[in-house]
Design a protein around this nucleic acid. Structure first.
Length: 210
DNA sequence: ATCCCGAGGG
DNA sequence: CCCTCTGGAT
């Protein structure tokens, strides 16, 4: 895609959805952090079903640490990788209390030092809570970036760098959510709905049969 | 490179 | 049945 085509694509996504937000349900930065950790290789819908019961019981790092790994497990058994996630969320809550006064740190270094938090999750927190211009590249964005020719790359870091370089500055903060939603509902992994795609004419691989 | 790991869709 | 879902740690 050319620079002009990329600008046009984001212009359309912006027009269709001016203020995109995550579909994860949360009531505080802490809850967003926990929800994102739990969303690894799982659907937002599935995470929301679990957190709707978990967050009222454990809305804060204090309550979550008290609930503990075993307690958390009972609420998230229906989510994939639940053993790792329960352990990470319990440890992460204790670490927030011990090192950060129970607050979610704003810098990437501190975030990535938390158990279960890697580059992608740290970027989601920085972007969703403080609207910082960073790109969290997940399974959807990696696929869309490569499939469209928007941001080709062999690994997620390569795609992240390509997006940071190619997405127009004015659209960078919201680009994460537009790309996620596009990947989730239109540019689906198995069978992309090219017939419903608003950027089809800008894409390098539109499905001609659709 | 491998493991973790349930639910939903096709 | 197989693939996918807002990955991270080893």
């Amino acid at each position: 895609m050319t620079k002009a085509e990329i600008g046009e694509a984001f212009k359309r996504w912006h027009a269709a959805n001016p203020t995109p937000v995550t579909e994860l349900e949360y009531g505080s930065p802490f809850q967003l952090l926990v929800a994102v950790v739990m969303s690894a290789q799982a659907t937002d819908k599935g995470v929301n079903i679990a957190t709707r019961k978990l967050f009222p019981v454990a809305p804060t790092p204090e309550a979550m640490a008290t609930l503990g790994e075993a307690g958390i497990t009972e609420y998230i058994r229906t989510i994939g990788l639940y053993r790792n996630k329960a352990k990470n969320v319990a440890m992460l809550s204790r670490q927030l209390l011990e090192r950060h006064g129970g607050e979610v740190p704003r810098d990437r270094e501190s975030l990535e030092a938390l158990p279960g938090v890697g580059r992608k999750t740290a970027n989601v927190v920085l972007n969703s809570i403080w609207r910082e211009p960073v790109m969290a590249v997940d399974t959807h964005i990696f696929r869309v970036g490569n499939r469209m020719g928007l941001a080709p790359g062999k690994d997620v870091v390569a795609v992240e760098k390509a997006l940071m370089r190619r997405v127009p500055k004015d659209y960078l903060v919201d680009a994460h959510h537009w790309l996620i939603l596009h990947g989730r509902y239109v540019c689906i992994a198995r069978k992309p709905k090219c017939g419903e795609c608003i950027v089809r004419d800008l894409c390098q691989f539109p499905d001609k049969t659709d």
